[in-house]
Design a protein around this nucleic acid. Sequence first.
DNA 1: ATTTCTAATATGTCCATACATATTCAATCT
DNA 2: AGATTGAATATGTATGGACATATTAGAAAT
Lengths: 241, 241
Amino acid sequence: MTTRPEPVYLKIKNELLDRIRNGELRPGDKVEHEEIIAQQYDCARATVHRAIRELAEEGYVERKRRAGTRVASAGTRATRVTIPLVRQEIEERGASYRFTVLEQSVRETPQAIAENLGVERGTKALYLRCVHFASDIPFQLEERWINLEMVPEAEHANFDQINPNEWLVQSSPYSEAAHFFSAQNANAEQASTLNVLENDALFVIERRTHLGGKAITYAQLLHPGANYRMTAKNFSFSTKN
Amino acid sequence: MTTRPEPVYLKIKNELLDRIRNGELRPGDKVEHEEIIAQQYDCARATVHRAIRELAEEGYVERKRRAGTRVASAGTRATRVTIPLVRQEIEERGASYRFTVLEQSVRETPQAIAENLGVERGTKALYLRCVHFASDIPFQLEERWINLEMVPEAEHANFDQINPNEWLVQSSPYSEAAHFFSAQNANAEQASTLNVLENDALFVIERRTHLGGKAITYAQLLHPGANYRMTAKNFSFSTKN
DNA sequence: ATTTCTAATATGTCCATACATATTCAATCT
DNA sequence: AGATTGAATATGTATGGACATATTAGAAAT
């Protein structure tokens, strides 16, 4: 198998990472200066810099000017989590997707929701409740509030063909989002909607979406715990293997 | 307030991100070529390259040679999750930390565990069960298996002063880890240990740790759902604000 | 019309150099 | 001793050039 030449910065990065992983370089240890590594690999300092900068971004080393680079103290691990669109997630499992809107009404926001939307309590907002099915089995219950001050068109939007999340993604694709993950017991209503038993554990994703400091929407996405498992992916891989 | 001059690559990155966020650049739209942007900002192409490369790593744009750069189709969002050491997590909440080892024994691995450890079913491994307390309230129940083929010292390690996770982190700080998140109902034993009711929802973190393709340990970290909420952090911020 | 080849092109990597800036360490002054 | 100052130094950003490589669009051949 002819292997394409690995970029030098990746080679340096991976070899450093290996040394960190196998314990040759331990937390607190100093990493050689960029210039010295550049000599060792016979490359430019910028190339070494990129390698070590990426390791720093991924949390493996810590850098300080003049002080140099040290292996970071281990323990806390940063991983990458991808929150997909429900439809994608379902179709990737080889199941067919459909959804139904159980409720769609303009309501006064209760305290907890108002806080999440950053509006005064009692401000009118669009409340939505949907179920998303994977091959006709309930997969996700979505309870959503949309800030009509930010997205007034939502009030008369039609969610027969397109689900609220995808509709919102169209209107402002890359708004800023904050996510929280937790576990809850299903209440009677949630249980019957998701076709599980009351008190069954649910995996909950909360999402708050902003644009320019103002909240667009707040959603709770509830999944039957028995089916649902979220996977975190690592940042970098030593290609050696 | 005298503000230090923003690096050019960040200025470019943030201004592009703003254009993507506010909808001026929509998914599928082409971003100007690096050389053109370099002219606009009167900087080198390498500077533009870094700005756009970071946007690509964070999932905002997609790049192809010759084809150019396009705003990525929105929807799936990548976020960063940090899994801290229990002790840190508890102390950061201003609570005092202590833990107790409920069980520590060498056992034959059952099927499910053997799969996670990548060993033959029935291989001996160290089984550990610990509770971690936040100001004397049970915070996390840890059920762990350690592969003694990889870490034989663990068999006679003393977990009175240092908890198993921190002990393992010392022995191989930056092994590779895979994480999974899910929700489970507490069984009777878990419930009494965590001082919650049977069937209460638990937030579960599973962690599988490898080194050079071989599993070191597999752990389930169970948290009472009522207390626990995991927060995902975004990658980049437009500094404009 | 379809396939095959070829040239154009935008991104990907890299270099050699330069200067900026945070931080340390040592020398100097109180 | 303690505070202040200043030089040394490792990283951070940037330049302007070069070549590599994937991919596309168009030309040529079937």
